[in-house]
């Protein structure tokens, strides 16, 4: 009985987290298309519902009623597993994101490592999908994506080390609390920029969307997918983008902290501030998609390995020396 009650209360909490995440993923897709359209002086989706807000819902319904086609020469088990893996990994990482000092599903000691680990597992959905399709374009897309995500993970890892040097803990709530007086975006601004660009590459967003470059690879690893399975890839991708925005706001923009500790601001609940920060970062993501042309693949690799990695490593040395010299190291 005791276990059952634990399971029920946890399920309730998980649903309370995941349903808003899924709804906001649908909304964010609409927002993305809208911003993209406005930059290009188009209207964007504006027909279904007020301002076209229900467009994603209509799309989801369309995908649900479409036939799921599994290619006869594909590796069926892995082909079906791939979108499930993508979706699951995109959703489980939300467990550790703190919405306020107490509102967090799992307040674990190694929260940031968990986030990093899960986001580095995200590449498997893509590789599995690309390989199991047994087709040339998906395979090329998967290979590109694997190399790209592994490269940019390295610099994200080093940037996380930068933040950890200033915090002295791997717990996400500790990271937020350490920014009470000063958000890390100010002292670590170059790292924030590199994190943002690496997050674009990590989530296969334009200008780094070579794995699904429609001009050369049809749709990359998603080419053979249809119906609900395609929609799951799509949902997973946008949930990952939101997660990267959440990670950026926790690491650099003070998470759920309010920008100024004054009356009208500090009564607003932390969850609202976090959501606003995520939205701000997402609007930047969408703008980048609209205004920047796609990178060439060798330039992408050069940017990751020859520019971002040395720069962030140098910044680790700088941060460590600065903290050590001024005796600011967070030793407890």
């Amino acid at each position: 009985m005791e276990y059952l009650s634990i399971i029920f209360s946890e399920t309730y909490k998980i649903l309370f987290l995941l349903v808003p995440v899924l709804v906001s993923v649908a909304m964010i897709v609409w927002l993305d298309r809208r911003i993209w359209a406005f930059v290009q002086k188009r209207q964007g989706p504006n027909v279904v519902g007020p301002f076209g807000l229900l467009q994603s819902l209509a799309d989801a319904l369309k995908y649900m009623f479409k036939e799921v086609i599994i290619p006869s020469s594909s590796n069926k088990v892995i082909f079906i597993l791939a979108p499930i893996v993508t979706m699951t990994l995109a959703l489980i990482s939300w467990a550790v994101i703190p919405f306020s000092a107490t509102q967090v599903l799992a307040d674990i000691n190694v929260g940031i490592l968990y986030l990093f680990a899960v986001s580095s597992l995200g590449v498997y959905g893509i590789i599995m999908g690309g390989w199991a399709s047994n087709s040339k374009y998906p395979f090329l897309g998967a290979i590109r994506s694997a190399a790209q995500m592994v490269s940019y993970e390295v610099s994200i890892g080093v940037i996380i080390i930068n933040v950890l040097l200033c915090v002295g803990s791997l717990n996400l709530n500790d990271i937020v609390m350490a920014q009470e007086s000063l958000w890390f975006v100010i002292p670590l601004f170059p790292m924030f920029v590199i994190f943002f660009i690496s997050a674009l590459a990590e989530t296969n967003r334009p200008p780094f969307d070579l794995p699904e470059a429609e001009a050369e690879l049809v749709a990359g690893y998603q080419t053979e997918y249809s119906g609900m399975m395609y929609a799951m890839f799509w949902l997973g991708e946008y949930a990952n983008i939101l997660l990267m925005c959440a990670m950026g706001s926790v690491l650099f923009l003070g998470g759920w902290l309010s920008p100024i500790d004054l009356f009208p601001f500090n009564v607003i609940p932390g969850a609202i501030w976090l959501i606003l920060k995520i939205l701000l970062l997402f609007i930047l993501f969408a703008l980048v998609k609209a205004i920047v042309p796609r990178y060439r693949y060798d330039q992408l690799m050069r940017l990751g390995w020859k520019i971002f990695l040395p720069l962030s490593l140098t910044w680790v040395v700088l941060t460590a020396s600065f903290l050590f010299y001024f005796n600011l190291l967070p030793i407890n």
């Binding site: 190694v110 490592l113 990093f116 680990a117 580095s120 498997y124 694997a146 592994v150 993970e153």
Partner: peptide, 19 residues
């Protein structure tokens, strides 16, 4: 040993197995 577990996940699963 949560640190070891996460590092295992990051290094072996996230990087080595991908290669």
């Amino acid at each position: 040993a949560e640190f070891l577990g996460m590092i295992m996940l990051i290094i072996y699963v996230g990087a080595v197995a991908v290669l």
